[in-house]
Design a binder for these strands. Structure first.
Lengths: 349, 349
DNA sequence: CGCTCGGGCGCAATCGATTTCATAATAAAT
DNA sequence: ATTTATTATGAAATCGATTGCGCCCGAGCG
């Protein structure tokens, strides 16, 4: 008979009892030696650690989570993981959470300019991720998804919202002062002598967009304001430019304030291709401060949102909450910075 | 006496036994009714489902994972989550994995141009994430991290590598034919009459870089080849340009092939600012095909890597492996596409 | 009409840690 | 020297599901 070589599907992995046996102590002691070093004598601990190392012991996390009722994982709900804006936010979140000992589970809603969110699709996504039984949730998407997250909210699982404010929510939020930032941006244009200024919006009716729109209106006390509808994405910047170009030049604004850099760049490229000179004929200003805003030609004037810092702050707040700290500020506002580059200049006369 | 209002820290949540009681069946039946519908009578199942819904029952994942020895989670090790290149890859991975019922845990090594990876830092990161006890691992970083991942490899946890080939690895890999793609790119330059061409490298000694370098040499059968060292990041493109500009113009190449779009763009912006005309004086070609390659002026000619597709393919392969399917191809190569845009043109004479 | 077969269901073992409670050993106090 | 406080350790309960095994009962078969 040939040797039995039916591949052993399951590899035996050392468990705590094995370590206990090798170290000559009880499982309780092993657990303590590894988790709370202060509670066990140095010599004993050394034996345990040695045994664990020799056996290649790794605690079974499922068992630990079950008993301890914690997972040391946070769920991050993000509209689109491929987006440069969220990418930087994620880096900050990851830095803070990792520093505090938490892992990251990502629920990517994968919203794009062409695919909007359908609640069931979304629920399925989040469901899956939330199934990881997380200790806390970070919402980057501006609302509380149905399903598990809602349940977790009821179950008092800590939640922190980032960027978008969530109406009526009782959990902490981190954002920038969008209204003031927008006002500052538009005032920059007004200061350059622009009178006819357009606002290219983000996703309408969101808090983010309303705030920026308000700031736009605040600054435009005189002159004429046009309000166009966009959705933050590149394509809507292109579309807005094309629509404008189809109209009569004398109806064109002399400056554009876009609610995102992506749209601003789409708009810029399109009008440039049509022979419009920027900033001589038209000034353009964006919002977000993504890296690529520097790469356009002319480089884009923009409102820099401290995404990394926002992410870190939110991550720290969530970590505090998960650790049981009660005194977390309800609302944190970080400062933006208007970065003037080549895409804005004096109004044409 | 005042009512005891010491906030109930832990909210009671329905467990399977509660559902069983309400539905008037055993816990075993509840488990089966919810997990394997075929095994239980329709009427019974309906009662169980109704009871579960009424109680707002959600299975405790830790318990399930412990018993079933699965977590339905995959670990993704990514060099830098904020990077546009990896962002798109992640979208593909997420799409495939979610479709197949797996959640995503991210281990972000957070490598940047200025921060290189230190093994311990890295191990800590991955450790934390791996602690989620995942069913499979996706490596986007070109090597097997020490610690948990290595252990998992030994324990036969499925692993799939993406992009970078990992030397001597026994697990499947998904990539593009970097050598052929690089050759095609450089041949494009040669075809335009360029004789003196420079290669701006990625992180030296990586498989990715060696392959592209080889392709560069393959195509450069005649003429002169310069080889400069970069690291894929924007700043190294700038640095390379500055170094070149410090030299005598007659030593300059007439064309540059950069191992990444970011470097190409950094280089492009820098030489442009110095008064060099592109593509009249110098042609530039990048690698990757990131969205922002279109935004530069002139738009960047580049080798488009099907990142989304790579991600989906790798995700599917890992899902197959996790599901126990043995017949997964050992090596998948996807096609690249040379996209010619404005940054390349005939060699100056 | 008796026997086998199998679908539907329940009992109880099991997964692998953490943690309470009790106990033994040691140090401190009187 | 005896009591008390302190500390280190062990025994066993516990977290909440999944699943092997076996029972019951009705259908199919000879």
């Amino acid at each position: 008979m040939a040797a039995k070589n039916k591949s052993t599907r399951r590899i035996k992995t050392a468990k705590i009892a094995d370590v206990a046996r090798v170290a000559g102590v009880s499982v309780a002691t092993v657990s303590r030696a590894l988790a709370k070093p202060g509670m066990v004598e140095a010599a004993t601990r050394a034996r345990v650690v040695a045994a664990a190392k020799r056996l290649g012991y790794t605690p079974n996390v499922a068992a630990r989570n079950l008993r301890a009722r914690r997972s040391n994982m946070a769920l991050v709900v993000v509209p689109n993981i491929g987006n440069a804006y969220f990418g930087e936010l994620l880096r900050g979140i990851d830095a803070a959470l990792t520093r505090r000992g938490y892992g990251l589970i990502i629920a990517n809603l994968d919203l794009t300019s062409t695919r909007d969110n359908s609640p069931d699709h979304e629920e399925r996504y989040v469901d899956l991720a939330a199934a990881g039984q997380v200790d806390g949730v970070l919402l980057l998407n501006g609302y509380v998804p149905k399903g598990p997250v809602r349940t977790m909210l009821d179950a008092r699982v800590p939640i922190v919202a980032v960027g978008e404010r969530i109406r009526g929510a009782k959990f902490p939020q981190v954002e920038v002062d969008n209204r003031a930032a927008a006002r500052e941006a538009v005032e920059h244009l007004v200061g350059l002598g622009h009178k006819r200024i357009a606002y290219l919006s983000g996703r309408p009716r969101s808090h983010l967009d309303s705030a920026r729109r308000s700031g736009f209106r605040d600054a435009l006390t005189t002159g004429e304001g046009l309000e166009w509808t966009g959705d933050y994405y590149f394509a809507s910047g292109v579309a807005a430019a094309e629509a404008m170009l189809r109209g009569k030049p004398r109806d064109w604004p002399t400056a554009l304030f876009a609610a995102s850099d992506e749209m601003a760049i789409g708009f810029l490229k399109t009008v440039l291709a049509a022979g419009v000179s920027v900033p001589r004929d038209m000034s353009i200003i964006g919002f977000d401060g993504i890296d690529y805003a520097r790469f356009s030609d002319p480089a884009l004037t923009t409102v820099v949102v401290p995404r990394r810092q926002i992410g870190e702050t939110a991550g720290e707040m969530l970590a505090d909450l998960m650790a049981g700290s009660g005194d977390v500020p309800a609302h944190v506002r970080l400062a933006t910075e208007l970065r003037v580059r080549g895409s804005t200049g004096p109004a044409p006369r």
